[in-house]
C-alpha cells in the first residue's frame, strides 16, 4: 500500500466519521417527529434533525467525490454495515425521555461547535467550507439544548431527578469524543484543546443546572472504529430498510 493511498483512505474515513455522527443523531432526533412534548418543541427537535441531516449530506457527498469505487452519498448512508459506521457512541444512545434527548444534544453540540470552530480553518478547503456553513446551525443547537438542560436540571423535583439519571446514562459515552482514532491524527483537529474548552463549558452549564459532574466514570469507546453498542444495529435496520428491500428505489 503506497503512502498516498493510505492517506487518502484515512482522510475519507475521517470525513465518514464526521458524517456518520451527524446522520445517526439526525435519525435519533427524527424519532421525536410527531411525538414531541409540545407542538413547538416537536418542530424544534425535527428542525435540528434536518440541520444535522444537511450536514451529513455535505460530508457524504465530499467522501463520495473522493472515493474511487463509485460510492454515492446514498450508498454511503444506506449500504454500509454497522461495523463500517464510525459515529460516536453518544449519538446512537436511545432518546429516553425529553431530558435525555436534550442532554445528548447538548453534550454533542458543544463538542461539535468546538470542532467546527477549528475545522473551519482546516487546510482542506472543502472541509473548512462545510464547517463554516454548519457552525451557525450548531451554535443554535448549543443554545437551544443548553437552555433545556438548565430548565430541567434546575426545575422541578421530578425534572431534576430525570436529568440526574440522564447524566448518569450518557456520561460514559463522552470520553470517546476526545480519544483520537488513527485516521483523526493526521487530519483532525486538536482534540486536547477541544476537551479543555468542552470541560469548561459543560461544567458551567451543568453547574447552572444544579447537576453534579460524575467522577471516576469508566468511559466507553469504540464507535469511531466501528465497534458499537447494541443500539446501532436497530437504528440502521430502520434507516436502511427501504434501500435494502427495494435496492435503488427513488422517490
Amino acid at each position: 500500500m503506497n503512502v498516498e493511498f493510505y492517506f487518502m483512505n484515512a482522510f475519507t474515513d475521517y470525513i465518514l466519521h464526521l458524517a456518520d455522527s451527524t446522520l445517526i443523531l439526525s435519525q435519533r432526533n427524527s424519532e421525536w417527529c410527531g411525538h414531541g412534548p409540545i407542538l413547538e418543541q416537536d418542530i424544534a427537535i425535527t428542525n435540528i434533525s434536518l440541520d444535522l441531516l444537511g450536514q451529513a449530506r455535505n460530508f457524504y457527498q465530499y467522501a463520495a467525490a473522493l472515493s474511487s469505487n463509485g460510492a454515492t452519498e446514498d450508498s454511503l448512508a444506506y449500504l454500509r454495515k454497522e461495523r463500517e459506521f464510525k459515529n460516536l457512541l453518544l449519538v446512537e444512545q436511545p432518546n429516553g425521555d425529553w431530558g435525555q434527548t436534550v442532554l445528548r444534544q447538548y453534550l454533542f453540540s458543544q463538542y461539535q461547535y468546538l470542532l467546527f470552530e477549528q475545522l473551519q480553518h482546516s487546510s482542506d478547503e472543502q472541509l473548512a467550507a462545510i464547517a463554516a456553513k454548519s457552525i451557525k446551525e450548531t451554535k443554535y443547537h448549543v443554545r437551544w439544548s443548553s437552555e433545556w438542560v438548565v430548565r430541567l436540571g434546575d426545575g422541578t423535583e421530578e425534572s431534576h431527578a430525570r436529568m440526574l439519571k440522564a447524566v448518569e446514562e450518557l456520561w460514559p459515552y463522552t470520553g470517546e469524543m476526545f480519544i483520537p482514532a488513527e485516521y483523526e491524527i493526521s487530519f483532525g483537529v486538536d482534540l486536547a484543546s477541544i476537551k479543555k474548552n468542552w470541560d469548561e463549558k459543560v461544567t458551567a452549564v451543568l453547574g447552572e443546572a444544579s447537576l453534579p459532574l460524575p467522577e471516576k466514570v469508566f468511559m466507553q469507546s469504540g464507535g469511531k472504529t466501528g465497534t458499537h453498542t447494541e443500539q446501532l444495529g436497530y437504528i440502521l435496520a430502520e434507516l436502511q430498510y427501504m434501500q435494502r428491500t427495494y435496492p435503488g428505489a427513488e422517490w
Partner: peptide, 20 residues
C-alpha cells in the same frame, strides 16, 4: 401565536415555527 414558558423560549419557538 404559540406557547412558551417564557420570553426566551417564545423567541426560539417562533424562530422554529415561523422563520424556518
Amino acid at each position: 401565536s404559540l406557547h412558551a414558558a417564557d420570553a426566551a423560549m417564545a423567541i426560539e419557538n417562533a424562530r422554529d415555527v415561523y422563520t424556518r
